[in-house]
């Protein structure tokens, strides 16, 4: 699958949160979406998922304009917790089952079982690390062609981050693509193969992680410093 954004813009009054973004996402890759707060990462993800309406520009999926049918293939998982606190983990599964045709409940249960979370647990009683695991397991149990994860590692301990990273790598469907935004650049270093750097609503740079290492002897953290630390 190929997603192409052309001249994508989102204006809030005088401010452009996303400004003339041209971006091509192809299947089989994991993209890091990087940039400081307010650089437009979340807004871009929300436009792609259909949660925010674009002001200008176009989005196409395999050459066809993005419509509601294609939106079903795109999943978006925000940073903020979005489960009701009275829910049990099994209610989360039922909720996903109701909302998403491509949700695989058995796969979800397998994933949470591997992480020692039981369906009977109350969402309210889960630690932030466990909550993140339930959230990402639910996202990965859908057969989406494009999976957008907004800051999945926020506020989560080191070991849980490892578990999450391994689940993401292991469960990614062949040919689908993943976009992960994060402040923790180092955390993404080995997981992603492409890095997209955003600055003031625009794409400052996009590069292949291994090529960057081969050609410039730089990690994405090095590149991040290069792009953003200029005073």
């Amino acid at each position: 699958m190929k997603i192409e954004c052309e001249g994508l813009t989102k204006s809030y009054f005088a401010k452009r949160a996303v400004d003339q973004v041209n971006l091509e996402l192809t299947g089989g890759h994991i993209y890091a979406l990087l940039g400081p707060n307010g650089s437009g990462k979340s807004t871009l993800m929300k436009i792609l998922s259909g949660l925010v309406k674009k002001s200008e520009g176009s989005i196409s999926v395999d050459g066809k304009q993005l419509d509601w049918r294609a939106r079903e293939d795109i999943s978006y998982t925000p940073t903020e917790p979005f489960f009701y606190s009275y829910m049990k983990v099994s209610d989360v599964a039922a909720y996903y089952d109701d909302f998403f045709k491509d949700f695989d409940r058995a796969r979800f249960y397998d994933l949470i079982k591997d992480m020692e979370i039981s369906p009977d647990m109350k969402v309210r009683s889960l630690s932030s690390g466990m909550l993140a695991k339930v959230k990402i397991a639910a996202a990965m149990a859908r057969r989406s062609k494009l999976i957008l994860l907004d800051e999945p590692f926020n506020g989560i301990d080191l070991l849980s981050r490892d578990v999450l990273a391994k689940m993401i790598i292991g469960e990614m469907s062949e040919g689908s693509s993943l976009v992960i935004s994060s402040h923790m650049v180092e955390e993404l270093e080995s997981i992603v193969d492409m890095a997209v750097f955003m600055k003031n609503g625009r794409i400052a740079e996009m590069c292949d992680v291994e090529t960057l290492r081969i050609n410039e002897n730089k990690s994405i953290a090095d590149k991040y410093r290069e792009i953003y630390s200029e005073v």
């Binding site: 089989g28 890759h29 994991i30 790598i169 292991g170 080995s190 997981i191 291994e210």
Partner: peptide, 17 residues
Amino acid sequence: SRELAVTYRINPNTASR
């Protein structure tokens, strides 16, 4: 290749490489 990716916590394309 996928198991290798999970074990080393690397991108699946890197594992194939």
